[in-house]
Design a protein around this nucleic acid. Structure first.
Lengths: 246, 246
DNA sequence: GAAGTACACTGGTCCGACCAGTAGCCTGAG
DNA sequence: CTCAGGCTACTGGTCGGACCAGTGTACTTC
């Protein structure tokens, strides 16, 4: 006979459960409004502070947003990866997850995205990639900002071409966290011209592989590029963890 | 000239920032205690409700835990992936991701985990896998429940052997969501004896590959097994999305 | 010394109040 | 009739006080 540990369930938790269930299950669609706090407190039969604590939790989870003065009440938000991003970032900063693990994970995700994209890409995807690559070429002469934006676009198009939203979101989040971790080091890096040239060259190769529907090559190229450009920031004794993915 | 959108910063957000910074940066170590709510409200110069809303957010982020009656105050928690778990679960449920995408994602994650595990596994990992496999063999004769538990253990050991907590958490979450989606179909499936035999056989092969440090084989076996056992529940017209991963 | 008890204090919840700020109506000018 | 402008009822944010059930600790009792 086994028993489960019992923890007292707080009133505000119950409220969170109910609203979360309604939002996640789609019974409350993005853009719809929750009743105001005073109305909620009568519906749930609790005090306003209890309602407010529940709303705080839901807001921290990026499920709702409430602005003072809006008579329509708190707004139900569309599912977004910002909460995922926050959690991952915190975990990364708390040293629980190091750059090596993040890079590993990104190599896995990006590689798979490229693999799938190469197989499933449509003609629209290809022309979107052409456009993005052209934007990168143009951005390279204008400044790092523009170049970086175009680079992100390229990655996003690839991810979307994989036709898997989970892959899109995860890759986006991990990319963001990785960049946050090394952005200061990246600031005073060796000259950016060479960096941009390297990325540009790589993206052109990837695009060719994707166009040729050669998933294996595209994936290998993507992983290789990540390793070549970021491995230097990984502590030397951990670089071995990245090698198996090449 | 560019301007940034401005949002008013609430008092409780400031408190969250300060405490989160202290926790994440390590200035407050796990197990240490925060001052009680009444003490915090004087230190921050705000009302108790404001303090409480901040604590709620921090608790939802799994950074602290507070129990009523404890005179030592809220406890700082060790960094844990539970918040990440929650975010990912919500996203998976809300984004209406289909079984095909989930299975795709799981094939990617599990495959990579096996690849890494085969390369990085220690002797302890191997013996843990031996134990888990033995437990599965024993469970197969006792009932589906025991077998299933042992099966989960096997997967977890593999994931942990990859030495990447992100992979561990993601794989665990995706596995859970996949099972939720097909558990009813799995209930009235063809006889379980055959199912268990199939899994048992597969796990033995995987273990051999891992022992031989043959990452490619282990990964391929893992992806193959997922496809063979679950693809039948994926709508036929979407099965093509899984093929590139085999 | 161990067992039991009393107490001070904790967090959870409720209530009532005030404030700054907003959405939408309402008005009056054109 | 349209529309700019002000008005107002209401929103969420914050405060302070209050009560309760439950806990950890220190103190009593045996």
């Amino acid at each position: 006979m086994k028993f489960e540990p019992v923890a007292p369930i707080r009133a505000y938790e119950r409220i969170v459960e109910q609203i979360e269930e309604a939002v996640v299950s789609g019974r409350l669609k993005p853009g719809e409004r929750l009743p105001g706090e005073r109305e909620l407190m009568t519906q749930f039969g609790v005090g306003r502070s209890t309602v407010r604590e529940a709303l705080r939790v839901l807001q921290a989870a990026a499920l709702i947003r409430s602005r003072p003065g809006d008579p329509r009440g708190p707004e139900v938000l569309a599912a977004s990866p910002v909460a995922l991003h926050r959690s991952m970032h915190r975990l990364a900063r708390a040293q629980e997850v190091g750059l090596s693990e993040l890079l590993q994970f990104r190599m896995v995700l990006d590689g798979s995205a490229h693999l799938l994209a190469a197989t499933l890409r449509t003609d629209e995807d290809l022309s979107a990639l052409d456009t993005a690559l052209a934007a990168m070429r143009a951005g390279a002469t204008e400044g790092y900002e523009e170049f970086s934006r175009a680079d992100v676009t390229f990655h996003e198009v690839i991810a979307r071409a994989s036709r898997n939203p989970l892959l899109v979101v995860s890759a986006e989040v991990v990319r963001g966290v990785v960049l946050e971790l090394i952005e200061d080091k990246l600031q005073h890096a060796r000259d950016r011209a060479a960096l941009m040239k390297s990325w540009l060259n790589h993206h052109a190769l990837v695009l060719e592989a994707v166009r040729a529907a050669d998933g294996e090559s595209a994936a290998r190229l993507a992983r290789r590029a990540l390793y070549d450009n970021y491995a230097e920031y990984v502590p030397e004794d951990q670089r071995a963890k990245l090698a198996p993915l090449l």
